[in-house]
Design a protein around this nucleic acid. Sequence first.
RNA 1: GCGCCCGUAGCUCAAUCGGAUAGAGCAACGGCCUUCUAAGCCGUAGGUUACUGGUUCGAUUCCAGUCGGGCGUACCA
Length: 553
Amino acid sequence: MKQQVLQLVYDVLRKLQYPVPGAIKCEYPKVSTHGDISTNVAMLLAKELKQPPRKIAESLVQSLKENAEDVRDIQIAGPGFINFFLKDEFFIRHLKTILNAGEQFGKIDAHTGIKANVEFVSANPTGPLTVGHGRNAVLGDTIANLLEWSGCDKVDREYYFNNAGRQMRVLGDSVRLRYLQLIGENVDFPEDYYQGDYIKEIAASLSETYGESLREENAEGIFKERAEEAIFADIKKTCDRLGIKFDYFYNEKSLYDDGYVEELIGIFRNKGLAYEKDGAIWLKTSEMGLEQDRVIVKSTGEPTYRLPDIAYHREKFKRGYDLIIDILGADHHATYPDVLAGVKALGLDEAKMKLVIYQFVTIVSEGQPVKMSTRKANYITLDELMDEAGPDVVRYFFLMRSPQSHLNFDLDLAKKETEENPVYYLQYAHARIASILRFAISSSVEFGWRYSEGDEQNAECIDLLTGKAEIELAKRLEQFPEIVEFCVNSYEPHHMGSYLTDVAMLFHKFYHAHRVITEDRGLSLARLSLCLATKTVLANGLRTIGIGAPERM
RNA sequence: GCGCCCGUAGCUCAAUCGGAUAGAGCAACGGCCUUCUAAGCCGUAGGUUACUGGUUCGAUUCCAGUCGGGCGUACCA
C-alpha cells in the first residue's frame, strides 16, 4: 500500500506542476492518530518553494483526496506531515488476497531475472561447526531464502573450502599422532595441534580398520583424507539439522587443478598490475585505491589466500551470476577489499558483489563469556546447541539481532527453557490458530452450522470484522510483502523476526478480545478468514527464516 | 598509530537508511482460566539514547572530537 500512496503523491505533484523532490518518504507512523501512512513531501518542498510546509501540504491535500481510492481521510499534522487514513474495508477485503495467494503470499518480484550466488559457512574441514559458524550459516541461508522469495530466477547456496594448506597438514598430523598413541607408541602431542576428541575418534576408527599397519604412513595421506571425510560428513549433517542444503561445495584446489590461478597471474602480469620483488609476486593494489601493494605469491612459490580468492570470484562471474554475495565474520573483513580491487582490475562489474559482515558471537554461560578456540577444543558446537535447544530456537537466536550487532548467546537460556524463549511466542500463535481451525471443523455443528475447510473463502460477511483488534491485525498482515522486500534489500533478516512477533502479538490480542466460533455463522466465518490469513502470514514468514510452524504445541 | 563495527530501560536487543510521544523480550510488582491452547492477555514501574559541539523545520540516526568495548591491520586463512 505504501507504494500506491507514493505513486499517488507523484501523480499529484506532476499534475499540479510542482517540483518533484528526490527522496520522498512514505512510512507507517508509530502512533495511530497519525494515520496509516504518512509522507514528508511538504517538508521537502518547503525550501524549494519558499513556503511553510503546512501551507504546501494544504495545497496538496485537496488534489490527493480527489484521486485517492481506499482513503478515508487525509490530514495535515505536526511540522507538515500529510497523514493518510485508509478505510478499514480496504484491509479487511485484503484478507481475501492473502487467502487466495496462500503459500505464495509475500512473494515479490524485486529480483526477477536475477541469478544469485550466496557463499556462506565456508569453514575448512578442520573440526565441527561451532557457534560462531552458526550465525554465518543461518544468516546466509536466510538471505538465500529471502532472495528466492523476492523472485530470483535461481539462488545457489555455495560452500567454499580449502583442503590443502597448512591447517590441513596439521590436522592430518594430529590424527596421525593420536593414532600412534592408540597403538601404543609413546609420542608427544604438541599443544598447537588440534586437541578435540573428534581427532581421537577418527584415529580410533582408523586403528579399528587398519590395526597397526599405518605406523609408517605420513600425515598427508590417509590420515588427512580420513579426517577431511569424517569432518565434512559431520559438517553436512549439522547443516542438514539446521535445514541448510548447499548446491555447491567449491574446492579451492580445483582453481589450481583447472589452471585458473596460473591464468590469473598471467592476466595481472599482462595488464602490468603484478611485479616481482624480494622473490615474491606483488599485486599493485595501491593503484587500485588501496593503501599498499599486496603479495599474491610468496617467495616460497606458494600463493597467498587472496590470489585464489580473486580467481574464485572471477569464476563466479564466469558462471553467470548477477548477484554474488559473501557472508563474512568481522574477523575476515580485511580480506574483502583485496578481492574487490582484483575483480575490478579484471574489468568485472564489482557492483554485482555484496558483502554481508556480521559481528562476533559471544557465548555466555553462567554469566561468563566463554573463550573459544577450535584448535584448543575449547568450544561449543552447533550440534550441542541444537541438542539442547532444538534447531528452531538456534536459528531464531542467530536471527534476532542485526548482523552488525554483537550477539550474546545466552547458553543457559537457550538450553534451559521453553517459555522464556521468544521463538515459542510465534509458534504458539500459529499452533493456536491451527487448534481453532480444528475446533471449527469438529464443533461448528454444535453451534447450528457446519464448517469445512475453504468455507471462509466465500465469506461475503467479511465486512463484519469491525473490532479494533481485528482491524489492527488485518493492517499488519497487509504489510508482509513489504517486510520481505525490506529484509532482502537491507540483507537484515532480523526485521522479519520483529515483524512476526508483532503479528503474533496482535493475534493474541484479537484472540482474547473476540471469540471466533459462535452461533453467528457469518461472523464466525469472517473471523476464521482472519485467523487463516494470520496463519498464512506466520507460516510464510517462518518459512523465510527457516523456522517450523507447528500445528500443535 | 590506522581501518571497520558497536555504546539506547536492571539484562539482551529494536527503532521502517533524518521524522511526530524512543519500543519489545527477559527480570520486578499487581490482576485474568466452568467458554476455540494461560507457551497467552491486561495493568504498573523502568530513559539526559556514553559525553561535548556542529549541520536543519526536526538527530538514537548524519559530521567532528573525547571516553569505553569488539575485530582487524602478514610473504596466516
